[in-house]
Design a protein around this nucleic acid. Structure first.
Lengths: 322, 322
DNA sequence: CTCTCGCCAG
DNA sequence: CTGGCGAGAG
């Protein structure tokens, strides 16, 4: 059986708000590691991958792996019956054909109990390769959302160009064209080689400043990128792990300005459908930061790390990237 | 002639928002006691009864009883021409075929004068029996509205079950089923026999506690209900009066949490159309509290007591209560 | 989290 | 034309 307790219904509500437009049905894959959902969007263009970690639940128990086929529209409806601060408990018996949801008010004077019918969903579970990206941009999720909304007023697609100086989002259409350039935050500039300290956590800046002196700042370009290729990926992976951990502790605590950080192996310039990016950006309420991970001619990964887990979106670039 | 002055146009606006969907035409019965409107809803399923008391008007004069047949849709349109804080004066000459409305800004620097055509409405004035109900639930009107909205997402009807422990609203439909249980607020639990002090006003709790010792708390079930039937109704009626008065003084002043109180003669379980209940719940802006009065197989009374009077809705239960 | 505005459906 | 729903702002 499954029994998973979430302290704040708002987290689940935000998650569903974030993905329900892209995906209407999907399997909640429940294991002892947590709950995951992976699905192509309705038009099979984008991929959504959600992971909720077992140890980040208020309480979690899953005796047996089970895929719970849910209609996300229905789930959204039912979650609307919970107030943001309610404690939510998800329950499913083995082989159950319904998912139980219990909403308890913090004062425990109000209990809502709901049952949602489940469905069988044939799921091609896609393995997602653990790609190393040429450019990783970390920025405020709200800013990302704002940029998508602004540029969507102009055109259908956005060109994202990442260089050492910053990242440029540009779009054009009937009424005109526009672009937003975000400069890398001071003190965080990194070339491809100096990739150990990835996280833009202000608390870590001192440490980073020191290490910077032992390194070669701002000198690496594509040519050099080739030389130490066997070494770097491993380092970067470690850094990513650190970034994630640090972010989790911050997501709830601080609301100071999120800077823009760019980790660059190689300049990239890719064009994406703004319709999809705007949809991805709806996850902004989940996490202060978003990371955009890009390599030329490879699907973009847009990732939100939040308290309870990770939400990833993948989207292939438009072919004509000009 | 009639001349009735209301200090805040917002009250009238809220009233019309609350009933205009149910009733499109009705007689404003003006007497020296005040203004009343009673009408079946458009589909003749529910009954709406509004009473505005003469002495709660800023000024009130009615020389002669007169029914003013108004189209509530038109009245709503005209009231939209008033700002919330305007002082409204309703005027009607004897045998007039129109109702005059004057909107004066509080600073008296703006006066709007409107005339609305009246219509002749044949009205079967229904006597509403002064029923004693087996269960009276008093709760936050906002919460009531919320529950109606939530459950309306699931099904067409709601089963309301009142017991000593609390009240449960439940509904089911295509996507699943749901129920909300509201527990009676602490210190307010009452059986049917101890029904003199009805109001859940915290200020009165001490008094209630004392009197309770002279009574038989929580021991009455159906069997006993029969024995003192001649005695209890009178007591309870007095209590209802008290409740109303106390509520009025609170409606505007405090916004502390409204608890849930349940006065129970007998457990009841009734099923109602959520469409109608949701419509009733639209009156929530009028009053912090709502009372649901139920007896098995008898129409539900949903009552809102507000500063200027009382708004009641009656709805027959669905036949299949299960 | 509530209220208001704009969009979509009946 | 009106009401319900979803999104954005205070």
């Amino acid at each position: 059986m499954l029994e998973a307790r979430v302290k704040q219904a708002s987290v689940l509500k935000k998650l569903l708000d974030a993905i329900k437009e892209l995906v209407t049905d999907g399997n909640l894959d429940c294991t002892d590691e947590g709950i995951a959902l992976q699905a192509m969007d309705n038009s099979h263009v984008a991929l959504v991958s959600l992971k909720l970690l077992a140890d980040q639940f208020e309480a979690y128990r899953c005796d047996r792996n089970m895929p719970l086929g849910v209609n996300l529209t229905s789930l959204t409806k039912i979650l609307k019956c919970a107030k943001d601060n309610d404690v939510v408990t998800l329950k499913a018996a083995d082989d159950a054909d319904s998912l139980g949801l219990v909403f308890e008010s913090p004062k425990e004077d109000r209990v809502g109990e709901y049952e949602m019918k489940l469905m069988d969903i044939d799921q091609e579970h896609l393995g997602i390769p653990d790609t190393q990206y040429d450019a990783t941009i970390t920025m405020s999720s709200a800013e990302f959302q704002r940029i998508c909304r602004d540029l969507a007023a102009l055109g259908e697609s956005v060109k994202i160009e990442a260089s050492k100086e910053g990242v440029r989002f540009s779009s054009e259409g009937e009424v005109g064209s526009g672009s937003v350039l975000l400069k890398q935050s001071a003190g965080t500039e990194r070339g491809g080689g100096s990739s150990k300290n990835v996280k833009r956590d202000p608390d870590e800046e001192e440490e980073e400043e020191e290490e910077e002196e032992d390194r070669k700042p701002d000198v690496d370009e594509e040519g050099e990128d080739e030389v130490d290729d066997e070494d770097r990926p491993k380092k970067r992976k470690a850094a990513n792990g650190k970034a994630k951990t640090a972010k989790k502790s911050k997501a709830v605590s601080s609301d100071e300005d999120v800077g823009v950080s760019i980790i660059l192996e190689k300049q990239v310039s890719l064009t994406f459908s703004l319709k999809y990016l705007s949809n991805f950006a709806k996850s902004a309420p989940l996490a202060r930061e978003v990371s955009l991970n890009m390599s030329n001619d490879v699907p973009l990964l847009v990732q939100f790390d939040f308290e309870q887990g990770t939400l990833q979106f993948f989207l292939a670039p438009k072919i004509s990237d000009e």
